[in-house]
Simulated assay, not measured.
Amino acid sequence: MNATKTLLQGRQPMIRFLGKRTMPAKVDHTPHPHPASPTNNLPESFASYRQKAQQHGPLNQQHGFSSGGIGATPGGSLGPIEAGKGNFFDRSELPKRFQRLTWTQAEIEAVESGGASLYQ
C-alpha cells in the first residue's frame, strides 16, 4: 500500500545548489531612483511630486473637490468635452468600416441555443 514511498526512495532531485545558503550581513534599503528613470533623481518631497503629477489631468487644480465640494464649479469651466481631432468617445462615431456589425437572425439563434441549432 505504500507504493509512493517505494517509488520515491531512489529519487534524486535534478536541481543542485552550490554551497550553503547564506543571507547578506547588510542590505541597503535606502530609496534610490529606478534605473530607467528619465531624471535619475528622487523627488524632494511628496508635496513637490504631487504638484507636477498628472492623473486624468493635473492634480493641483484648485476647483471642484478642494474649494467647497462636488459641484462648486460648473462643468463647462473644466474644459471642452469634444474629442480632439482623430479621437472618438464611442465606436459609433468611427467611420462605417470600423463600426460594430449587426447580428443576423441565424447568429442570434446560434448564440441563444448555445450553438446546438447549427447541428440539427
Results as ranks from 00 to 15, higher is better:
residue 69 G to Y: 01
residue 50 R to S: 09
residue 66 S to P: 04
residue 109 E to F: 01
residue 115 G to C: 04
residue 29 H to G: 00
residue 60 N to S: 15
residue 57 G to P: 02
residue 3 A to K: 14
residue 93 E to S: 10
residue 42 L to N: 08
residue 81 I to P: 03
residue 57 G to L: 05
residue 79 G to H: 03
residue 92 S to E: 13
residue 29 H to A: 10
residue 17 F to L: 15
residue 25 A to M: 08
residue 22 T to I: 13
residue 34 H to E: 07
residue 66 S to N: 13
residue 27 V to F: 07
residue 119 Y to K: 09
residue 54 Q to H: 13
residue 43 P to A: 02
residue 75 G to R: 08
residue 27 V to T: 15
residue 79 G to D: 04
residue 76 G to C: 11
residue 110 A to V: 03
residue 86 G to N: 10
residue 58 P to S: 05
residue 117 S to Q: 09
residue 18 L to G: 04
residue 18 L to C: 07
residue 28 D to F: 05
residue 101 L to W: 05
residue 45 S to Y: 04
residue 52 K to N: 07
residue 24 P to I: 00
residue 18 L to P: 01
residue 85 K to I: 07
residue 43 P to E: 01
residue 109 E to W: 00
residue 106 A to K: 11
residue 59 L to T: 14
residue 87 N to M: 11
residue 4 T to I: 14
residue 27 V to K: 06
residue 5 K to G: 06
residue 111 V to F: 01
residue 92 S to V: 11
residue 84 G to R: 04
residue 29 H to K: 11
residue 31 P to N: 06
residue 54 Q to F: 12
residue 71 G to P: 02
residue 110 A to K: 04
residue 116 A to M: 10
residue 47 A to E: 15
residue 72 A to C: 14
residue 76 G to P: 01
residue 88 F to H: 14
residue 40 N to R: 11
residue 55 Q to M: 14
residue 54 Q to M: 14
residue 26 K to F: 07
residue 11 R to K: 14
residue 14 M to T: 12
residue 86 G to I: 05
residue 117 S to R: 04
residue 61 Q to Y: 03
residue 65 F to D: 11
residue 99 Q to C: 09
residue 16 R to I: 12
residue 63 H to R: 08
residue 8 L to A: 15
residue 27 V to R: 04
residue 78 L to Y: 08
residue 35 P to I: 02
residue 46 F to L: 13
residue 3 A to H: 14
residue 89 F to P: 02
residue 15 I to H: 06
residue 27 V to D: 01
